[in-house]
Simulated assay, not measured.
Amino acid sequence: MTESILIIDDNEDILEFLSVVLGDSYQLHLATNGEIAQTVLDKEIIHLIISDIMMPGIDGFELCRLIKSDVEYCHIPIILLTSKNTYKAHIEGLEVGADAYIQKPFSSELLQVQIANLLKNRRKIKEHFASSPFEDVRVMAHSKTDEAFLKKLDEYIRTNIKDPNIDIDMLAGHMFMSRTTLYRKIKSLSSLSPKELIDITRLKQAASLISRNEFSFYEISKMVGYSSQSLFSRNFQKYFKMSPIEYFDSLPRE
Rank of each mutant, 00 (worst) to 15 (best):
I79N: 10
K126V: 09
N213H: 02
F134N: 08
E92F: 00
K151Q: 02
L150M: 07
A98E: 03
M54D: 14
Q237C: 05
G23T: 13
V224P: 03
Q229C: 04
V20H: 10
Q27H: 08
G225F: 02
L66V: 10
K126E: 08
P164C: 00
L80H: 01
E219G: 11
I58M: 05
E147M: 05
N213D: 07
R138G: 10
D136F: 00
I76V: 01
I36S: 10
Q38W: 07
Q112Y: 08
S131V: 02
E155H: 08
E44R: 12
I45Y: 11
S221D: 05
L203Y: 05
F240M: 06
D10I: 02
E92K: 10
V224K: 06
R179K: 14
K185H: 12
L192I: 01
P194H: 03
F17L: 05
S132A: 11
N165T: 11
N117L: 11
I198K: 12
G60N: 02
M223K: 03
D154L: 04
L197C: 12
A148R: 15
V96H: 13
L6P: 15
D59K: 01
F61W: 03
H29R: 13
I50K: 03
H174T: 14
N117R: 13
Y183R: 13
L182N: 04
S216I: 05
G60I: 00
L189Y: 02
K152W: 04
S250D: 02
I67S: 14
S108W: 00
Q27V: 07
R65V: 01
I125A: 08
D136K: 02
E109N: 11
G34K: 06
R138A: 10
T181I: 00
E109T: 05
E254A: 09
N33D: 11
K120Y: 11
N85G: 13
G93Q: 06
C64Y: 03
E62K: 11
D70Q: 10
P252I: 03
E147R: 12
R184C: 04
H47F: 02
H90Q: 07
I186H: 14
E254T: 12
T145Q: 15
L22S: 14
A98G: 05
D52M: 05
G93F: 02
L48T: 08
L197E: 13
G225N: 01
I50R: 03
T32C: 08
F106N: 14
T159D: 06
A172C: 02
R179P: 12
D163G: 07
P77A: 00
F134Y: 01
L15F: 01
H75C: 08
N85V: 00
D199V: 04
Q114F: 00
Y156A: 08
S19H: 11
L30W: 06
V71I: 05
K84Q: 06
I102A: 08
I198P: 14
K187W: 10
N117E: 14
K84M: 07
A89C: 04
M223C: 07
N11Q: 15
E254K: 12
F176I: 11
S131M: 01
K68I: 02
Y239V: 00
I168L: 14
T39W: 10
L171T: 10
L41K: 14
F106S: 13
E127K: 10
T201W: 02
D169W: 03
A98D: 06
F17Y: 11
A206G: 04
I125Q: 04
F106I: 09
P252S: 02
Q112H: 12
I166T: 06
